[in-house]
């Protein structure tokens, strides 16, 4: 519990995290607002085919903030100080404060989980308010089950980013790959054109929790994504436990 408190304290005292919070909390609402404005006339005329997606698009794309959070939680530990200060890093301090590496990793993952779940709730509230403000009585009804899907999707995405960064130690690779994959070019989406197996990739399966008419039911989609998170955490823990901090 103490280690968990310490990890929360670390997250909130890092300026880069506030960028993650800002993007995570408000980007989805902004996207949803733009989308609502664009679709407004068709929705009012009753001819929009995208009514059920309004809002969720923003919440799907808003994971960028959460990716930054998951990556930064780990990469900040490995950020090397300038050479004139001796080239140390924070991870040496972290591991001399908490003696069990497993507890350290668990505490950090716990802090990331709680923070991303809270952040997704803030994002949902902002998004629902934004759509209601613009579409008024025409705003789509947000179903509780899909909103829970959003919370899970965000949290699992943060944990995937976290786990990958434990393996790479450096934030640049996971940050670039994950952000591009979730915004510009979705590799897993392209792969679904080639093989059905791609629907079992974590981000594909995960989006089925919030988008209607997916390959999996929302529950199965969530389960598949969670399985990815669990396996990645186990691998990350094994690697982290055996690793020399100096190497």
């Amino acid at each position: 519990m103490r280690a968990f408190n310490a990890e929360l304290s670390k997250l909130f005292s890092l300026p880069g995290m506030w960028l993650a919070f800002l993007i995570g909390a408000f980007a989805p609402a902004a996207i949803a607002a733009l989308d609502s404005i664009a679709e407004k006339e068709e929705i009012i005329a009753g001819v929009s085919i995208r009514l059920s997606e309004v809002g969720y698009i923003g919440l799907g794309l808003g994971v960028q903030g959460i990716i930054i959070l998951g990556v930064l939680a780990v990469s900040s530990e490995y950020l090397t100080e300038s050479s004139e200060s001796g080239g140390g890093n924070q991870i040496t301090t972290s591991l001399t404060v908490v003696s069990s590496r497993f507890h350290f990793l668990l505490a950090k993952a716990g802090a990331v989980t709680v923070t991303s779940a809270l952040l997704s709730i803030v994002a949902i509230l902002a998004t629902v308010s934004a759509t209601n403000l613009i579409l008024g009585e025409y705003a789509p009804a947000f179903e509780a089950s899909r909103l829970i899907g959003v919370v899970c999707y965000w949290t699992f995405t943060a944990l995937l980013a976290f786990g990958i960064t434990v393996l790479t130690k450096n934030g640049m690779i996971p940050l670039t790959v994950l952000i591009i994959n979730s915004s510009v070019v979705t590799v897993s989406y392209l792969l679904t054109k080639v093989t059905k197996l791609a629907f079992y990739l974590p981000d594909r399966a995960g989006t089925d929790m919030l988008m209607s008419g997916g390959f999996h039911t929302p529950f199965t989609g969530g389960l598949i994504m969670f399985a990815w998170v669990a396996v990645l955490f186990i691998i990350a823990d094994i690697v982290f436990d055996r690793r020399d901090v100096a190497s």
Binding site: R2, S13, L14, S76, E81, G86, G87, G88, T96, V97
Partner: peptide, 29 residues
């Protein structure tokens, strides 16, 4: 039990000195 100071500062450069010590204090209660 053991207080250790190794190479470098052992702290993230974007945090304040006080914030750095505060998370350590939390970890140890």
């Amino acid at each position: 039990t053991v207080g250790a100071a190794l190479d470098g500062f052992g702290a993230h450069r974007m945090r304040t000195g006080r914030a750095h010590l505060r998370w350590i204090a939390r970890a140890a209660g």
